[in-house]
Structures are given as structure tokens and as C-alpha cells.
Design a protein around this nucleic acid. Structure first.
Length: 200
DNA sequence: AGTGCGATTGACT
DNA sequence: GTCAATCGCACTA
């Protein structure tokens, strides 16, 4: 399980060019990790778009955020608060410092490994939150810049099942451009982070 | 070279 | 609900 044979990577051409469209598109898709096995369904994302003061690429390229400027479908991984790694998918064309933050997964495969990586038992707590999902799948800066449309160790794939209704809200934990509705989530999923009031 | 601050989490009242 | 932990890095000088 969890080999690229079972979960062929998404082709870059099928990723919407627009960042907000990509964030919505990724809901219901899979993040697959070579642990050697491990996967989860994306249930929550946030878009950091062109001209967005909250985006890390807003002030131009730096050593930390250079992966954000890669062609769409590459990993931008950074350490937040000195504590938690954040997984983003770069978006738009090369040279555009925009991306989509993956905020929560519904664990599917490699659940025992995720429990070990996280040190918690509860399924709902394994990957609910950006730092938690990175810990569960052992995502760190060594994966920064990786092509998520290519062969492992980490990639995006399609899920066979239907995706339910997608909700939209303000983004979590930011202060600039905080009123924009650029967070997307699978309505009714218990694996979504954030306050209940944001998830209606 | 020094400083302030997060796209968070977990522990605690 | 509140709050501290923790550190890479962007910014100022």
C-alpha cells in the first residue's frame, strides 16, 4: 500500500493555476508519504494568494521561502513558532510566491506509524492541524522544495471516493489580511481543525 | 550583531 | 477559556 503504483501522483497540469482554486481543488485529494506507508485525505486548506500580506512570499524571495516561488505542485515546508513544521503546496507559475497550506488530514493508511510519530492514540488527533499532520507523516525541512507531482517520498494523489460539501471561512492564526475567506474545509468532517463556529 | 515575532501546540485554570 | 514553550529568520542598524 501507499506505493506510487497504488496512488499515482497528480499531474501538474490538473492543478488549477489560481491559488484559491487550488486550495479548493485539494480538498478530498490525498497526501501520500513513503513511511514506507502512510496517507491521508486532505480535509482543510488555506490559500495564500497574490498580493496577500499574510503570505510568506509577499515581500519577495528569501532563503526560507524560495520553494514558494517554484512552479505549482512543489513542497514549501517551514518551521512555525520553533515548534511545528507546516506543509504547503506552491501555486501558480514559477516566480510567483504563493501557495496552499495543508491544515488537516483524515488518516487513511499507516495509522499505527502516525500514532508512534505523534505519541497519541486518538485517530481524530493524529493529523488535525498543520503541525500535527507534519509530525504524523514526518515532514520536515528536508522535504522543502520536493516535487509533489513526482515519485515519493511525499506526493499528492487522487482519492476514489466522492468529496462532500466544501465550506469556506477566514484563515486561522494570522493578523494581516485576516478577513479574507481563503480557508477551505470539508463540511462535517471531524478531522478539521479550528473552532466549531468556523466550520459551519 | 541584536531584536522581535510568528500560517501552533499542549498543558493547565 | 488562558498561556508559555521554542527557534529560525527577517528586519533594522
Amino acid at each position: 500500500m501507499s506505493h506510487s503504483d497504488d496512488h499515482p501522483p497528480l499531474a501538474r497540469e490538473e492543478l488549477p493555476d489560481d491559488t484559491a482554486a487550488l486550495a479548493r481543488y485539494l480538498i478530498g485529494k490525498l497526501v501520500v508519504r513513503d513511511l514506507p506507508e502512510g496517507s491521508g485525505r486532505i480535509v482543510e486548506t488555506e490559500a495564500y494568494v497574490v498580493g496577500d500580506a499574510a503570505g510568506h512570499g509577499f515581500r519577495g524571495m528569501t532563503p526560507r521561502n524560495r520553494s514558494l516561488f517554484l512552479e505549482r505542485g512543489h513542497a514549501y515546508v517551514y518551521l512555525a513558532y520553533g515548534i511545528s513544521f507546516m506543509l504547503n503546496v506552491s501555486s501558480e507559475t514559477q516566480g510567483t510566491g504563493t501557495g496552499v497550506l495543508i491544515r488537516a488530514l483524515e488518516p487513511l493508511e499507516g495509522i499505527a506509524i502516525m500514532r508512534l510519530n505523534r505519541g497519541v492514540e486518538r485517530l481524530r488527533d493524529l493529523a488535525r492541524g498543520p503541525g500535527r499532520l507534519a509530525a504524523a507523516l514526518r515532514i520536515d525541512r528536508s522535504l522543502d522544495g520536493l516535487d509533489l507531482c513526482g515519485e515519493g517520498p511525499l506526493w499528492l494523489a487522487r482519492d476514489g471516493t466522492e468529496t462532500g460539501a466544501i465550506g469556506q471561512s477566514i484563515r486561522i492564526g494570522i493578523s494581516k489580511d485576516a478577513e479574507r475567506l481563503l480557508r477551505f474545509y470539508l463540511v462535517g468532517s471531524p478531522f478539521v481543525s479550528g473552532a466549531a463556529s468556523l466550520n459551519r
